[in-house]
Amino acid sequence: MSAPDRSLVGAAARPRGWIERFCRPVSGNRRTSFGDIAIVAISALFLGIFLVIPLATIFSLALKNGIHAYFRAVTEPYARSAIWLTFVTAAVVLPINLGFGLAAGWAIGKFEFRGKEFLTTLIDLPFAVSPVIGGMLFVLLFGAQGIVGPWLIAHGVKIIFAKPGIILATMFVTSPFVARELIPVMQASGSEEEQAAISLGAGGWQTFFRVTLPNVKWGVLYGVILCNARAIGEFGAVSVVSGNISGLTSTMPLYIEVLYDDYNFSAAFAVSSLLSLVAVLTLVAKRIVGRHVGVGTAASASADEELAA
């Protein structure tokens, strides 16, 4: 598609009508051109084909055999244990990554030190490598042929192919979310307020909890929401370390795969619909929180200044 032809825009002296209500250029006084409409229409079509239709399909297939079959599918013992394990994993992973994210964001955002660039890059590592490698890494460490695995197994501690492995793999994959979100926000809020607090006699923890944290709370929340969504949906890394023991080490995404492989399509889509619901809730929460924090670094910086003011 070619870009909207600006020379035509002035010439087209159409009256300002219903089209402008749906679609008009953000800047300038020019009228809506066909190019503009075409671009918006293409985006809408794309979203429809790739997002809305598949999402609707999941829900319609989930309910294909009726509402009773749906509830039976999601309350079945294996399904219940998969749902439970998924949320336990998220509940363990979130506070840890929150602690890590706050510490990393605080250190990088508020201090200058040697190796800061290196640390910032390192935090992004789990985003850069494939989740499968994240999983393998723990197998190489804690597996029976691994580095510390034989010792742990001899002492009756199971990490891999058990719940701790799932939690560790999820933690690895989701660790950057809070930190990534906080670093720009922390940087933008500067350190003047902290200096003022300390000069007025506040202690270190007091400054952190009463000055630093309130300034970045929306950023924290935003990071936590994203981290939670990924923790619940993680497939690749968890698949490597899970061993897929039904009812024991099967999370929701893994359980969906098992159901699908079992030709149990309506149950697979029923559990999928739960995950999709979490996704939709995430998007809503993200939208609400995003309004406070502003998305993207420049926007978030200015939004945060507004908040601080």
């Binding site: 029976a144 691994g146 197994i153 192919f161 897929n244 023991i245 039904s246 009812g247 098992v258």
Partner: peptide, 17 residues
């Protein structure tokens, strides 16, 4: 308790613990 996947992958998992 059951664990099911491709035979080779399952053997690998048993070897890995």
């Amino acid at each position: 308790e059951m664990s099911h996947t491709g035979s080779g992958k399952e053997a690998r998992a048993v070897i890995d613990g």
